[in-house]
Write a protein that binds this DNA or RNA. Structure first.
Lengths: 147, 147
DNA sequence: TTACGTGCAAACGTTTTGCACAAAC
DNA sequence: GTTTGTGCAAAACGTTTGCACGTAA
């Protein structure tokens, strides 16, 4: 469900950000469905749709949107940035072979409470502050398991 | 407890690897205590001890030692490789501010069984194979919490 | 003696930066 | 009118590679 330019403008303003065309294009892309994409892939995907945003614009705006809390950043198996449009708390599986990323929402809020429990215990054990009890597992996606 | 060259040679052979002086130097460094280091920091630390190993030698050997299971690799908050000499199952906290990494061993084997439980449930929910139920939390270390 | 490890320098992919111009407010 | 965003090109950064030489087995 893509938003109108005016809705996007309001959304950005409500997060304290200026409106710009590139920001609208990026948010439209992410807003369509849950997506995980690295910057190069985003660049290509937008180009295919006729939107030629420079890589520096993408990097800058992804950082801005991330700081505002509109997207999440995670790391692929070789360390590249991957941006996730789903900001509801959930976990990730990253395929070590092909780089594919999938979300995991475990049944009910149980997985969240387990993650919170781990977070709380780790905080007590170490004195650290843990920002987000979101977990990233390395593994193999179904199709890469067949090798 | 640093090993003698002969012990290091045997250790490497028992993992199917050849002995070399750089491998001994790296293993000695990691063997002294639990360490987390990125490649640049390892390079500098070894140089201070009078060991001038090239970066390519470090990268290559860290990959070799990792594949053999003698060290673990994780990712820092900006995506760089960090190598961990402690290969017992445990979790990590990564400081988003200064990059510091600390190990978390939660009381008893409970945290491991929780992690295994999460792993099993995520595998069932998604069809993925999850290699290692080791978790990496992003957060702030005690000294960076004071900012 | 054969396979493998080393160091150097060059190449590589990803991300950041400096700058002149344009757009948002 | 002032502040902020954009695109380009160049630079920076972490990592990998090709190659001639040295070392382990």
């Amino acid at each position: 469900m893509s938003k109108s330019p005016d809705q996007t403008r309001e959304l950005l303003h409500s997060f304290g950000l200026r409106y710009s065309k590139p920001r609208e294009i990026i948010l439209d892309y992410f807003g369509e469905k849950d997506r995980h994409t690295n910057v190069e892939a985003l660049y290509e995907a937008l180009k295919e749709r006729g939107h030629h945003l420079s890589l520096s614009t993408l990097y800058l705006n992804l950082a801005v949107l991330k700081n505002a809390g509109l997207v999440r950043e995670l790391r692929g198996s070789s360390g590249e940035a991957i941006f996730d449009s789903n900001i509801r708390p959930h976990h990730h599986l990253v395929c070590e072979n092909c780089g594919e990323v999938t979300d995991v929402f475990l049944a009910g809020d149980t997985s969240e409470s387990i993650a919170w429990d781990l977070k709380n215990r780790a905080e007590r054990a170490t004195g650290w502050y843990i920002k987000e009890p979101s977990l990233e597992f390395q593994g193999l996606c179904p199709s890469c398991q067949q090798d």
